[in-house]
Protein backbone atom coordinates (compact mmCIF):
# COMPACT_ATOMS: atom_id res chain seq x y z
CA UNK A 1 0.00 0.00 0.00
CA UNK A 2 1.02 3.55 -0.55
CA UNK A 3 0.94 4.30 3.13
CA UNK A 4 3.75 1.91 3.85
CA UNK A 5 6.25 3.45 1.45
CA UNK A 6 7.51 6.94 0.84
CA UNK A 7 5.56 8.28 -2.10
CA UNK A 8 8.46 9.76 -3.91
CA UNK A 9 12.10 10.45 -3.66
CA UNK A 10 11.69 13.92 -4.89
CA UNK A 11 8.80 14.80 -2.68
CA UNK A 12 9.67 18.43 -2.31
CA UNK A 13 11.10 19.06 -5.71
CA UNK A 14 14.76 18.42 -4.90
CA UNK A 15 16.57 16.22 -7.37
CA UNK A 16 17.28 12.71 -6.18
CA UNK A 17 20.73 11.94 -4.84
CA UNK A 18 21.97 10.18 -7.96
CA UNK A 19 21.23 13.15 -10.15
CA UNK A 20 22.41 15.63 -7.56
CA UNK A 21 25.91 14.39 -8.06
CA UNK A 22 25.90 15.68 -11.61
CA UNK A 23 26.26 19.42 -12.18
CA UNK A 24 22.91 20.88 -11.06
CA UNK A 25 20.51 22.00 -13.76
CA UNK A 26 17.68 24.49 -13.36
CA UNK A 27 14.27 22.75 -13.23
CA UNK A 28 13.22 24.06 -16.65
CA UNK A 29 16.50 23.04 -18.33
CA UNK A 30 16.17 19.67 -16.67
CA UNK A 31 12.61 19.30 -17.98
CA UNK A 32 13.72 20.23 -21.49
CA UNK A 33 16.57 17.74 -21.30
CA UNK A 34 14.13 15.04 -20.35
CA UNK A 35 11.62 16.11 -22.99
CA UNK A 36 14.29 15.83 -25.66
CA UNK A 37 14.89 12.22 -24.68
CA UNK A 38 11.32 11.50 -25.69
CA UNK A 39 11.88 11.07 -29.42
CA UNK A 40 8.21 10.82 -30.42
CA UNK A 41 7.45 14.01 -28.54
CA UNK A 42 10.22 15.89 -30.29
CA UNK A 43 9.16 14.59 -33.67
CA UNK A 44 5.58 15.55 -32.89
CA UNK A 45 6.63 19.02 -31.88
CA UNK A 46 8.31 19.42 -35.25
CA UNK A 47 5.28 18.13 -37.15
CA UNK A 48 2.85 20.28 -35.19
CA UNK A 49 5.01 23.35 -35.75
CA UNK A 50 4.97 22.52 -39.43
CA UNK A 51 1.16 22.24 -39.45
CA UNK A 52 0.83 25.53 -37.63
CA UNK A 53 3.24 27.14 -40.07
CA UNK A 54 1.28 25.77 -43.03
CA UNK A 55 -2.08 27.06 -41.90
CA UNK A 56 -0.61 30.38 -40.78
CA UNK A 57 1.38 31.15 -43.91
CA UNK A 58 0.01 28.59 -46.38
CA UNK A 59 -2.00 31.18 -48.29
CA UNK A 60 1.27 32.75 -49.39
CA UNK A 61 2.24 29.56 -51.18
CA UNK A 62 -1.22 28.39 -52.19
CA UNK A 63 -3.17 31.50 -53.09
CA UNK A 64 -6.34 29.86 -54.52
CA UNK A 65 -9.57 31.34 -53.17
CA UNK A 66 -11.50 29.21 -50.71
CA UNK A 67 -14.89 29.94 -52.24
CA UNK A 68 -14.28 29.92 -55.96
CA UNK A 69 -17.22 27.94 -57.28
CA UNK A 70 -16.39 25.94 -60.39
CA UNK A 71 -19.11 23.60 -61.59
CA UNK A 72 -16.85 22.13 -64.24
CA UNK A 73 -14.56 20.53 -61.67
CA UNK A 74 -16.87 19.13 -59.05
CA UNK A 75 -15.73 16.34 -56.72
CA UNK A 76 -12.43 15.76 -58.47
CA UNK A 77 -9.76 13.68 -56.83
CA UNK A 78 -6.29 15.05 -56.10
CA UNK A 79 -4.51 16.50 -59.10
CA UNK A 80 -1.79 19.03 -59.87
CA UNK A 81 -4.32 21.86 -60.01
CA UNK A 82 -5.98 20.74 -56.80
CA UNK A 83 -3.56 18.64 -54.70
CA UNK A 84 -6.32 17.74 -52.22
CA UNK A 85 -9.05 17.57 -54.87
CA UNK A 86 -12.25 19.58 -54.98
CA UNK A 87 -15.58 19.47 -53.15
CA UNK A 88 -19.12 19.38 -54.54
CA UNK A 89 -19.00 23.02 -55.63
CA UNK A 90 -15.61 22.61 -57.28
CA UNK A 91 -13.88 24.54 -54.51
CA UNK A 92 -10.24 23.76 -53.79
CA UNK A 93 -9.99 21.61 -50.67
CA UNK A 94 -6.34 22.45 -49.94
CA UNK A 95 -7.07 26.18 -49.88
CA UNK A 96 -10.11 25.58 -47.70
CA UNK A 97 -8.16 23.46 -45.26
CA UNK A 98 -5.38 25.99 -44.95
CA UNK A 99 -7.92 28.66 -44.15
CA UNK A 100 -10.06 26.51 -41.87
CA UNK A 101 -7.06 25.03 -40.08
CA UNK A 102 -6.25 28.34 -38.43
CA UNK A 103 -9.66 28.41 -36.87
CA UNK A 104 -9.77 24.74 -35.98
CA UNK A 105 -6.35 24.75 -34.32
CA UNK A 106 -6.94 28.05 -32.56
CA UNK A 107 -10.33 26.94 -31.30
CA UNK A 108 -8.99 23.55 -30.26
CA UNK A 109 -6.08 24.92 -28.28
CA UNK A 110 -7.91 27.87 -26.76
CA UNK A 111 -10.93 25.82 -25.73
CA UNK A 112 -8.65 23.18 -24.23
CA UNK A 113 -6.88 25.91 -22.30
CA UNK A 114 -10.16 27.28 -20.93
CA UNK A 115 -11.43 23.83 -19.97
CA UNK A 116 -8.18 22.87 -18.25
CA UNK A 117 -7.74 26.13 -16.37
CA UNK A 118 -11.31 26.19 -15.13
CA UNK A 119 -11.30 22.49 -14.36
CA UNK A 120 -7.99 22.52 -12.48
CA UNK A 121 -8.96 25.60 -10.48
CA UNK A 122 -12.31 24.25 -9.41
CA UNK A 123 -10.97 20.74 -8.84
CA UNK A 124 -8.03 22.00 -6.76
CA UNK A 125 -10.13 24.28 -4.60
CA UNK A 126 -12.71 21.58 -4.13
CA UNK A 127 -10.11 18.95 -3.32
CA UNK A 128 -8.22 21.09 -0.81
CA UNK A 129 -11.13 22.69 0.96
CA UNK A 130 -13.50 20.08 2.18
CA UNK A 131 -16.93 20.60 3.66
CA UNK A 132 -19.19 23.35 2.38
CA UNK A 133 -16.92 24.71 -0.33
CA UNK A 134 -16.40 21.22 -1.72
CA UNK A 135 -20.12 20.51 -1.60
CA UNK A 136 -20.96 23.78 -3.34
CA UNK A 137 -18.38 23.33 -6.09
CA UNK A 138 -19.42 19.73 -6.68
CA UNK A 139 -23.01 20.94 -6.93
CA UNK A 140 -21.98 23.34 -9.68
CA UNK A 141 -20.10 20.53 -11.42
CA UNK A 142 -23.09 18.22 -11.21
CA UNK A 143 -25.31 20.99 -12.51
CA UNK A 144 -23.13 21.55 -15.55
CA UNK A 145 -22.92 17.82 -16.16
CA UNK A 146 -26.69 17.46 -16.15
CA UNK A 147 -27.56 20.50 -18.24
CA UNK A 148 -28.67 19.38 -21.70
CA UNK A 149 -26.23 21.13 -23.97
CA UNK A 150 -28.39 21.83 -26.98
CA UNK A 151 -31.02 24.08 -25.35
CA UNK A 152 -28.26 25.76 -23.40
CA UNK A 153 -26.39 26.51 -26.61
CA UNK A 154 -29.51 27.80 -28.31
CA UNK A 155 -30.09 30.03 -25.33
CA UNK A 156 -26.52 31.30 -25.44
CA UNK A 157 -26.81 32.12 -29.15
CA UNK A 158 -30.05 33.90 -28.54
CA UNK A 159 -28.75 35.91 -25.59
CA UNK A 160 -25.21 36.74 -26.62
CA UNK A 161 -24.57 36.37 -30.33
CA UNK A 162 -25.65 39.81 -31.45
CA UNK A 163 -24.06 41.53 -28.46
CA UNK A 164 -20.66 39.90 -28.92
CA UNK A 165 -20.79 40.40 -32.64
CA UNK A 166 -21.22 44.13 -32.27
CA UNK A 167 -18.67 44.33 -29.45
CA UNK A 168 -15.87 42.24 -30.98
CA UNK A 169 -16.70 42.10 -34.67
CA UNK A 170 -18.21 39.07 -36.42
CA UNK A 171 -15.13 36.83 -36.40
CA UNK A 172 -13.68 37.85 -33.04
CA UNK A 173 -17.04 37.69 -31.31
CA UNK A 174 -17.81 34.25 -32.65
CA UNK A 175 -14.34 33.01 -31.72
CA UNK A 176 -14.66 34.17 -28.12
CA UNK A 177 -18.15 32.74 -27.89
CA UNK A 178 -17.11 29.35 -29.25
CA UNK A 179 -14.07 29.07 -27.02
CA UNK A 180 -16.00 30.06 -23.93
CA UNK A 181 -18.88 27.76 -24.80
CA UNK A 182 -16.75 24.70 -25.55
CA UNK A 183 -14.43 25.33 -22.63
CA UNK A 184 -17.36 26.15 -20.38
CA UNK A 185 -19.10 22.89 -21.19
CA UNK A 186 -16.07 20.64 -20.95
CA UNK A 187 -14.26 21.50 -17.74
CA UNK A 188 -16.26 19.19 -15.47
CA UNK A 189 -14.34 15.94 -16.06
CA UNK A 190 -11.06 17.78 -15.43
CA UNK A 191 -12.43 19.22 -12.20
CA UNK A 192 -13.60 15.82 -11.00
CA UNK A 193 -10.29 14.19 -11.88
CA UNK A 194 -8.20 16.86 -10.20
CA UNK A 195 -10.39 16.78 -7.11
CA UNK A 196 -10.06 13.01 -6.83
CA UNK A 197 -6.28 13.24 -7.14
CA UNK A 198 -6.14 15.99 -4.55
CA UNK A 199 -8.27 14.07 -2.08
CA UNK A 200 -5.74 11.28 -2.18
CA UNK A 201 -2.54 13.30 -2.48
CA UNK A 202 -3.24 15.76 0.29
CA UNK A 203 -3.08 12.94 2.82
CA UNK A 204 0.26 11.61 1.59
CA UNK A 205 3.40 11.71 3.71
CA UNK A 206 5.29 14.14 1.52
CA UNK A 207 2.47 16.62 1.80
CA UNK A 208 2.26 16.05 5.53
CA UNK A 209 5.99 16.63 5.70
CA UNK A 210 5.82 19.85 3.73
CA UNK A 211 2.91 20.99 5.86
CA UNK A 212 4.85 20.21 9.02
CA UNK A 213 7.72 22.27 7.67
CA UNK A 214 5.34 25.21 7.53
CA UNK A 215 4.62 25.40 3.79
CA UNK A 216 1.72 27.70 3.02
CA UNK A 217 -1.45 26.24 1.55
CA UNK A 218 -0.74 27.87 -1.78
CA UNK A 219 2.78 26.49 -1.87
CA UNK A 220 1.48 23.06 -0.91
CA UNK A 221 -0.89 23.07 -3.86
CA UNK A 222 1.35 24.57 -6.49
CA UNK A 223 4.67 22.97 -5.60
CA UNK A 224 3.72 19.66 -4.07
CA UNK A 225 0.26 18.40 -4.94
CA UNK A 226 -0.45 19.77 -8.40
CA UNK A 227 2.70 18.42 -10.08
CA UNK A 228 1.75 14.98 -8.83
CA UNK A 229 -1.80 15.36 -10.14
CA UNK A 230 -0.82 16.49 -13.63
CA UNK A 231 -0.97 13.06 -15.30
CA UNK A 232 -4.71 12.90 -15.89
CA UNK A 233 -4.88 16.64 -16.54
CA UNK A 234 -2.48 16.39 -19.46
CA UNK A 235 -4.38 13.44 -20.90
CA UNK A 236 -7.68 15.29 -20.48
CA UNK A 237 -6.19 18.38 -22.05
CA UNK A 238 -4.96 16.57 -25.14
CA UNK A 239 -8.27 14.76 -25.59
CA UNK A 240 -9.98 18.10 -25.20
CA UNK A 241 -8.23 19.51 -28.25
CA UNK A 242 -9.76 16.82 -30.43
CA UNK A 243 -13.14 17.29 -28.81
CA UNK A 244 -13.06 21.03 -29.36
CA UNK A 245 -12.14 20.74 -33.05
CA UNK A 246 -15.07 18.39 -33.59
CA UNK A 247 -17.41 20.33 -31.32
CA UNK A 248 -16.75 23.50 -33.30
CA UNK A 249 -18.21 21.87 -36.40
CA UNK A 250 -21.33 20.74 -34.57
CA UNK A 251 -21.79 24.23 -33.21
CA UNK A 252 -21.93 25.69 -36.68
CA UNK A 253 -24.94 23.48 -37.30
CA UNK A 254 -26.72 25.30 -34.55
CA UNK A 255 -25.80 28.62 -36.10
CA UNK A 256 -23.48 29.21 -33.16
CA UNK A 257 -20.22 28.57 -34.92
CA UNK A 258 -18.64 30.46 -37.74
CA UNK A 259 -20.82 31.15 -40.77
CA UNK A 260 -21.39 27.99 -42.83
CA UNK A 261 -19.15 29.14 -45.67
CA UNK A 262 -16.07 29.12 -43.41
CA UNK A 263 -14.47 25.72 -43.96
CA UNK A 264 -13.17 24.60 -40.58
CA UNK A 265 -11.80 21.06 -40.55
CA UNK A 266 -14.71 19.61 -38.67
CA UNK A 267 -17.12 21.34 -41.02
CA UNK A 268 -15.41 20.03 -44.16
CA UNK A 269 -15.45 16.52 -42.70
CA UNK A 270 -19.16 16.80 -41.98
CA UNK A 271 -19.95 18.15 -45.45
CA UNK A 272 -18.03 15.27 -46.97
CA UNK A 273 -19.80 12.48 -45.15
CA UNK A 274 -22.62 11.90 -47.63
CA UNK A 275 -20.15 11.50 -50.49
CA UNK A 276 -17.90 9.17 -48.55
CA UNK A 277 -18.31 6.31 -51.01
CA UNK A 278 -17.93 8.37 -54.18
CA UNK A 279 -15.43 11.05 -53.16
CA UNK A 280 -13.42 9.64 -50.26
CA UNK A 281 -10.62 12.20 -50.73
CA UNK A 282 -12.96 14.93 -49.53
CA UNK A 283 -13.24 13.32 -46.10
CA UNK A 284 -9.75 11.86 -46.03
CA UNK A 285 -7.85 15.14 -45.86
CA UNK A 286 -9.77 16.93 -43.08
CA UNK A 287 -10.07 13.65 -41.16
CA UNK A 288 -6.36 13.06 -41.57
CA UNK A 289 -5.52 16.61 -40.54
CA UNK A 290 -7.56 16.35 -37.35
CA UNK A 291 -5.98 12.98 -36.61
CA UNK A 292 -2.47 14.27 -37.19
CA UNK A 293 -3.04 17.32 -35.01
CA UNK A 294 -4.51 15.19 -32.24
CA UNK A 295 -1.73 12.62 -32.54
CA UNK A 296 1.07 15.17 -32.29
CA UNK A 297 -0.55 17.08 -29.47
CA UNK A 298 -0.97 13.84 -27.56
CA UNK A 299 2.64 12.81 -28.00
CA UNK A 300 3.78 16.25 -26.95
CA UNK A 301 1.51 15.81 -23.94
CA UNK A 302 3.17 12.47 -23.17
CA UNK A 303 6.58 14.08 -23.45
CA UNK A 304 5.59 16.93 -21.20
CA UNK A 305 4.17 14.55 -18.71
CA UNK A 306 7.38 12.57 -18.50
CA UNK A 307 9.44 15.73 -18.38
CA UNK A 308 7.42 17.34 -15.64
CA UNK A 309 6.88 14.20 -13.58
CA UNK A 310 8.26 15.08 -10.15
CA UNK A 311 9.16 11.43 -9.61
CA UNK A 312 11.51 11.52 -12.57
CA UNK A 313 11.84 7.84 -12.97
CA UNK A 314 12.32 7.55 -16.70
Amino acid sequence: MVSSTPASLSADGKPPAALAAAPPLSPSREAWRRFRKHKLAVASLVVLTLIVFCVAFGTLFWPLAINDIDFSSMLQGPSMAHPFGTDDLGQDILARMIYGGRISLAVGLAAMFVAVVVGVTIGAISGMASGRVDAALMWVTDLFLSLPQLPLLLLVIYLFREGLKSALGPEGGVFVLIVVVIGGLRWMPVARLVRAQFLSLREKEFVEAARALGASRMRLVVRHILPNALGPVIVAGTIEVANAIIAESTLSFLGLGFPPDIPTWGRVLFDAKDQLDTAPHWALFPGGAIFLAVLTINFIGDGLRDALDPRRVL
Binding site: N67, D88, L89, L154, F253, L254, G255, P259, P260, D261
Partner: peptide, 26 residues
Protein backbone atom coordinates in the same frame (compact mmCIF):
# COMPACT_ATOMS: atom_id res chain seq x y z
CA UNK B 1 -24.69 25.83 -51.26
CA UNK B 2 -27.47 27.89 -52.76
CA UNK B 3 -26.42 30.83 -50.58
CA UNK B 4 -22.83 30.43 -51.77
CA UNK B 5 -23.94 30.58 -55.42
CA UNK B 6 -26.08 33.68 -54.83
CA UNK B 7 -23.28 35.35 -52.91
CA UNK B 8 -20.77 34.78 -55.66
CA UNK B 9 -22.86 36.27 -58.47
CA UNK B 10 -24.04 39.21 -56.36
CA UNK B 11 -20.47 40.05 -55.48
CA UNK B 12 -19.58 40.08 -59.16
CA UNK B 13 -22.15 42.84 -59.58
CA UNK B 14 -20.96 44.79 -56.55
CA UNK B 15 -23.58 43.70 -54.07
CA UNK B 16 -22.14 42.48 -50.76
CA UNK B 17 -23.80 39.47 -49.16
CA UNK B 18 -23.34 38.31 -45.58
CA UNK B 19 -24.57 34.77 -45.11
CA UNK B 20 -26.42 33.75 -42.00
CA UNK B 21 -27.99 30.41 -41.24
CA UNK B 22 -30.29 29.62 -38.38
CA UNK B 23 -31.02 26.18 -36.97
CA UNK B 24 -34.31 25.02 -38.49
CA UNK B 25 -36.08 24.43 -35.17
CA UNK B 26 -35.63 28.10 -34.35
Amino acid sequence: KNQAIVKQSCEKAGIGIEIKSVVASV
